[in-house]
Design a protein around this nucleic acid. Structure first.
Lengths: 339, 339
DNA sequence: TTGTAGGCGTTATCAT
DNA sequence: ATGATAACGCCTACAA
């Protein structure tokens, strides 16, 4: 049986409340007894029971992190661990623990969130999502549970942190335009996902701003899967005229695309320039090195946690947004020797 | 204020214990009251408080998962999320939740484990580690806290699940030997880590079994970082005679190595064959596609959780091991047209 | 079948 | 400065 506060009290010949005060390092206690109690606590290897403490304090110092699973997106993406590290690191600092829930389906997600919100073990939730319609978000909003979204949704009544995906798309397109490209494809548009749509819109706007025609044929849909980049690039190569540059919504897609291009006997970037997004570690070592956009997943996580803290400690209702700056990293895959 | 069991009891004009019995679906209760209470619970949107329940039950149904952070290894590795998904999936099924702790240093790890074990909020721990000496493991063993290690350590008194890394190294070496290679390098040996050492020993044994000389010059140390693969391969290329095949301890290293080889004007696999380990998604789409070893991280996670469950539900002390089979995936990077 | 009482381990309030 | 007492929300003998 675990040693409790009462065991300590008995041994020290004081009351439980005194021991409690020692634990809380209350000033309303004599140095002598404090020392005595501390000594006994050490002797008996006493540690407070967090559960009991939580019960009376109504505070668990635990937040839930809900991630879409392997099924939903490529959970294998390096993006996720970095995010988790960011959340964890700042949570650690503030003495919070993280309850991780990877869910595979929307149903599972809703069920999980129900448990997390009603169970009383979780004080707030960080939800990773980028879908337009998220029943989970609606539910959270409805019951007024503290949460912040990493990514974005339709619902305006949420706190979220995200990159400026519109800008990311815009900058990539502009990057290619400035190199003289006039026919730029967009690979990985995924209707139903804000991320990809925002990026696509940014790309489109850049074309407009530079008086370039927007061609629906140059936009192809897919998920964040490398294999799809390969297959879909083949489709793009069949278009006439074919694109001279490709923006892929993810580096893995870009890698696949490059492979397809090279297999077709074409050169990157000379025949077709390629850029990805997310700046995975390998981007730098691919052949050719891949132009990409660093999204700073760690910061996204950190900021999300901070925002959640703000929500938890404030009683005024407000909707907060934070944009984590992304950074274009130009490498050989998009650099023409001479326009 | 949250609605409690007493609120329900009052509304239903029964005692709290009756409500409790309804929650527990006890047979010792009349169908009539049961229905009545259930209805009121729904009306008032009642959900049991897990914290209170945990306090009396002495069971939180929460397990801790401790991961080395960004600093320690490449936490960006796709390996980790898959592992987490495996743990989470099986934990979900059994109604367990996961407390995730990513720690950056050994000190942090010890501190975290102390909190998890003494705080009473966590019933068991899954620890990811592969170091020879882990003070954390020693601590866990000493206090007899239920835990299982994914990976391996010196300490024999632990439950662990892992791949057979010796075999992995052996098979890769043998694969190259069978293709006629006689000078095979091993890239990514990392003293202090069981994983890499076991793999290296397997590789060495394969050489012996086939009467090939073991040359210390052919073994180079490093971490799981792509950049190192590039740099270290350059070193290997300078050796005389240079290797005709390279086993890299990780796919990222292998990618870096391939880049270095190609930059040197040599061909993979014709001049130098390359193989990695871990079978990251990109392996299939690299140029050339990379021979690798599928380690089944998901299964590692699943099995680890199952083992922890066994430990939790058994009072006989025992040390359990589980080997998750790995699978050699041969692709072009190691396949010679004709030996 | 249902209710009463006591306890899980801690903190907070009020005395002393 | 310290102690007694009552919560926190739930479960479980034991009684009725």
């Amino acid at each position: 049986m675990r040693v409790t506060i009462n065991d300590i009290a008995k041994k020290a010949k004081v009351s439980a409340s005194t021991v409690s005060r020692v634990i809380a390092d209350s000033p309303r206690i004599s140095a002598a007894t404090k020392e005595k109690v501390l000594k006994i606590m050490k002797e008996m290897n006493y540690h407070p029971n967090m559960i009991a403490r939580s019960l009376v304090n109504r505070s668990t110092r635990i937040i839930g992190v809900v991630l879409p699973g392997l099924a939903e997106q490529s959970f294998q993406h390096p993006f996720f661990p970095e995010l988790l590290a960011g959340i964890g690191s700042s949570a650690n600092q503030k003495g919070y623990k993280i309850l991780l829930a990877n869910v595979d389906t929307v149903d599972e997600e809703q069920q999980m969130v129900k448990e997390l919100t009603y169970g009383g073990i979780t004080e707030g939730i960080i939800l990773l999502t980028s879908r337009d319609q998220s029943p989970t978000v609606e539910q959270l909003v409805k019951i007024g549970f503290p949460f912040v979204v990493i990514g974005r949704t339709d619902n305006p009544c949420v706190n979220w942190v995200d990159n400026d995906n519109f800008l990311i798309g815009y900058q990539l397109a502009e990057h290619f335009i400035q190199q003289g490209h006039r026919r730029i494809a967009f690979l990985g548009y995924s209707p139903g996902y804000m991320v990809t749509r925002d990026r696509m819109h940014g790309y489109k706007k850049a074309l407009e701003d530079h008086q370039l025609p927007f061609d629906q044929e140059m936009v192809v849909e897919s998920q964040f899967i490398s294999g799809q980049g390969y297959d879909l690039m083949k489709l793009l190569l069949a278009r006439k005229p074919r694109p001279t540059a490709v923006i892929a919504c993810d580096d893995l897609l870009a890698f696949g695309a490059i492979k397809a291009i090279q297999e077709a006997g074409l050169q990157v970037p000379d025949d077709i320039g390629v850029a990805g997004i997310n700046n995975v570690p390998l981007a730098d070592y691919y052949n050719p090195p891949l132009t990409s956009v660093k999204i700073n997943a760690f910061s996204l996580g950190t900021k999300a946690f901070e925002m959640l803290c703000t929500v938890l400690n404030s009683n005024v209702q407000s909707y907060n947004r934070a944009i984590i700056p992304a950074e274009l990293v130009v490498r050989s895959s998009s650099r023409r020797e001479k326009g």
